[in-house]
Design a protein around this nucleic acid. Sequence first.
DNA 1: ACCTGAACACCGTTCAAGT
DNA 2: ACCTGAACACCGTTCAAGT
Lengths: 251, 251
Amino acid sequence: MAQQTEEHRRGRLNRQRVLQAAVSLADEVGIDELSMRRLGQELGVVAMALYKHVANKEELLDGMVEEIISEIDPAVIDPAAGGEDWKNAVRLRVLSARAVLQRHRWARQVLESRTNQTPAVLGYMDSFIAMFLAGGFSVDLTHHVMHAMGSRIWGFTQELFDDSAGPGGGTGGEMSPEAQAAVFEEMAARYPNILQVATAASHDEGSVVGRGCDDQFEFEFALDLLLDGFERLHRQGWTSRQAKKAQAKGS
Amino acid sequence: MAQQTEEHRRGRLNRQRVLQAAVSLADEVGIDELSMRRLGQELGVVAMALYKHVANKEELLDGMVEEIISEIDPAVIDPAAGGEDWKNAVRLRVLSARAVLQRHRWARQVLESRTNQTPAVLGYMDSFIAMFLAGGFSVDLTHHVMHAMGSRIWGFTQELFDDSAGPGGGTGGEMSPEAQAAVFEEMAARYPNILQVATAASHDEGSVVGRGCDDQFEFEFALDLLLDGFERLHRQGWTSRQAKKAQAKGS
DNA sequence: ACCTGAACACCGTTCAAGT
DNA sequence: ACCTGAACACCGTTCAAGT
């Protein structure tokens, strides 16, 4: 309350203003704090007024997704690319999406929770499929390739856990050195393999737990592995029918 | 209410009973319907009584995850395997996890939303890492490979959208043939590439929209693509340092 | 030691009423 | 046409009180 900036009273509400306000509110305070009541307050209006511009909260979230999708497209995409250069086109598009999603941290969770069939989402997917087809991929292969991409078309992957904490617990930063050493002992005994990997990953070799993986590197690592795999299958003229026959004969 | 089966009054509550009840309640009614109040009711107890056995809802969800992880391990895993056969060991483990997660549909969403550092999760990851190390993978490669696996170690992938509906909207099943034809026209005009892929995917060739992809096939397709990629990098003696140098020189 | 009741501070959403 | 107030049916969680 008393937080009304000049943004309000800017005449009447409309769907566009509601969505934009929702996006920037979520940017600021996170998706868990985005309630209809709070959004209304931010717009200098009572929550129930929003229902004139948006059917319900689901539709609000869908609308927010559409807003951020519109930030992806105009980016690095060169429509003349495609063709032979499908791999680079896909790569750039994905990394552009990733950059957008990183500006809107809530978007990942919303995309995950949503069974999105809105026009913006369909349009994005359609143009994505187009890149593979333009690269000469069969419709069959393109289908499976899109499934394999999964949420990676949005530039994110389901991380195993939130990086912001070391593998020993959520609060490594607040522990005394003695406590940290104890955690280290405990980890070494119970999870020796995690510890090995985690310590190897820490670039400053003095630190006890490997905090902070390079998310961007890890994302591109997996992305390139997949893209290379797609390329290989494409060159081999892979089809799912072939694969099924081979499977039936083999195992 | 009045739903109390004989399951209750079975003496006093304890953490174990609370968690098991939570798992089976979520199995039955879904995670959105799982509230502390409803869980209490199911146990013949008032919601607040649960807080003696579980610190809060977060801890309840963590406990539920631990419950289902315990269903994964005893499965197909042959500890004598490992070694050369890392690929098959990983594959079987992942598919076993997938089978469990398919019995507990809510688990996927909970795992996604959670930054899980519970002992059960760490133990599962540790044994997972062990398979790659036993297969002769370097610690470095193993680290990146684990990131690339991501949520796939649990046997699921972020699907682009919920399959249960055709790509035209959520309610294809209830539409008249005329309406379906109209949707088809609309799709053909606006999302020609999606339509192409979707119709090719439908195995019964008569149907208008390709409903129902073979999730298991798609999952294994992407999994095998990654595993093959891992194998290739492993044989090449790949390290991230090399990759970085190559990148610095190249682009 | 374990459970309960009342209460607090929230949700999304409806509906009749105001301007 | 757009916004409001009161209300409904929920949440998770606290705390003092009961047995």
